[in-house]
Design a protein around this nucleic acid. Structure first.
Length: 294
DNA sequence: CACCAGGTACTGT
DNA sequence: ACAGTACATGGT
C-alpha cells in the first residue's frame, strides 16, 4: 500500500466527473477501484493523504490523476468571475486526468450521443469481449483491449455500440497500425489546433470528442469540450458575453468553445470540467409527476 | 408511443 | 463555413 501526499486534490470529484468510465466505489472500505489499460488501482483519500494499491507497479498514480499540474496557478488563471469561482469552490481539488490516448479515444468514440450508464456498459462489454482477464485484490474484471485485439467486427457489433462500432473498428486499425503518430510524445509536439485537426481525421471523432481526448489524455489543458450540458451552462452563465463574442452569428457549440478558450485562457479545460461536474451534480428540476395536493 | 442521452457524418446551400 | 437530417441503442 503506497501513500502519497496529495494536496489540492479531490479524489471523489476527479473520479466521478465523467472523465473516465471504468471505476467503482466500495462504500464499506471507502476505496475506489479504477481500471486503466491492464491495471487495477484501489485508492482512498484521507485529507491530504492518498492511499493506493496497484496491480501494476509501473502505473503512475500521480501522473494519471494530474497531480503534477500547478493547481494554485491554474485555479488563479481560470478564476475570472463569481460563477466559475463558485463551481471551483464546490469541487475544489478536481483534477484533469492524463489517461492513455487509445483507451480515452475509444471510450469517447463510444460516448457520443449516448448516456453515461450505457457508455459504461458498452465499454465493459468491449473489455469482456476483447480484453484479458485480470484479477487484483478481489476485483475480477477485464483489461481494456489493445487496438490490435479488436480484430473481429461482428463480435464488436454485439457489444451494443450501434453505428459507433464501425468508427471504433476503423480507429482501432489506425492506433494499432504500428506507427506512433497518435502517441503522447508525437501529439505533444503539435499545437492545440494541429492536434485537434489530427484527432478529427479519425472516424467518430468530431469537435467535442476530439476536445475530450486532447484534454483527458494528451494534456492540452486549453481544450474546452462543449456537450449539451456545457452548452446550457455556458449560455446560462455567459449568454450576453457570448452573444457579443459571436458578433451576430448563432451561438453554436463551436462559438461557445471559442469564447471559452479566449475567456478562460490556457487552462480553459479545467474551467470546463468544473462547470460540467457542477452542472451534473447540482440539484436538477425533477421531472416526476406532480404530487396531488391533499 | 414519444423523448432523451458527454455528437458525428453526410448532404445541400 | 453553416444549417438540416439520419443515425443504433436502451431507458423513462
Amino acid at each position: 500500500m503506497g501513500i502519497i501526499n496529495a494536496s489540492d486534490f479531490n479524489l471523489k470529484a476527479t473520479i466521478e466527473s465523467g472523465q473516465l468510465f471504468r471505476h467503482s466505489y466500495d462504500s464499506r472500505s471507502g476505496f475506489y477501484a479504477v481500471i486503466a489499460g491492464d491495471s487495477v488501482a484501489r485508492l482512498r483519500q484521507e485529507g491530504d493523504k492518498l492511499q493506493y494499491d496497484c496491480s501494476n507497479s509501473d502505473f503512475g498514480v500521480a501522473t494519471f490523476f494530474g497531480l503534477n499540474h500547478s493547481y494554485g496557478e491554474l485555479i488563479k488563471s481560470i478564476s475570472k468571475d463569481e460563477k466559475i469561482t463558485a463551481a471551483i469552490n464546490r469541487h475544489y481539488g478536481l483534477r484533469i486526468l492524463q489517461q492513455s490516448p487509445w483507451e480515452c479515444t475509444a471510450s469517447f468514440i463510444i460516448s457520443s450521443f449516448s448516456n453515461i450508464p450505457r457508455i459504461r456498459q458498452c465499454i465493459g462489454k468491449v473489455a469482456a469481449a476483447f480484453g484479458d482477464s485480470i484479477e487484483f485484490d478481489g476485483i475480477r474484471d477485464f483489461s481494456f483491449p489493445q487496438p490490435q485485439q479488436i480484430s473481429n467486427f461482428s463480435k464488436l457489433k454485439k457489444c451494443g455500440l450501434g453505428y459507433r462500432a464501425k468508427y471504433l473498428f476503423e480507429t482501432a486499425k489506425v492506433f494499432g497500425s504500428g506507427n506512433y503518430e497518435y502517441s503522447l510524445p508525437q501529439m505533444r509536439k503539435l499545437s492545440y489546433a494541429e492536434a485537434k485537426e489530427k484527432m478529427m481525421r479519425l472516424p467518430g471523432v468530431g469537435e467535442k470528442v476530439a476536445d475530450c481526448i486532447l484534454l483527458f489524455s494528451y494534456g492540452f489543458l486549453e481544450a474546452f469540450p462543449v456537450d449539451v450540458w456545457i452548452q446550457r451552462a455556458m449560455l446560462g452563465n455567459y449568454g450576453s458575453e457570448i452573444n457579443s463574442f459571436a458578433a451576430g452569428r448563432k451561438p453554436s457549440e463551436k462559438v461557445v468553445a471559442g469564447f471559452a478558450r479566449s475567456y478562460f485562457g490556457e487552462y480553459a479545460g479545467y474551467a470546463q470540467q468544473f462547470l460540467y461536474h457542477d452542472a451534473r451534480t447540482s440539484p436538477r428540476i425533477s421531472r416526476a409527476a406532480p404530487v396531488p395536493l391533499p
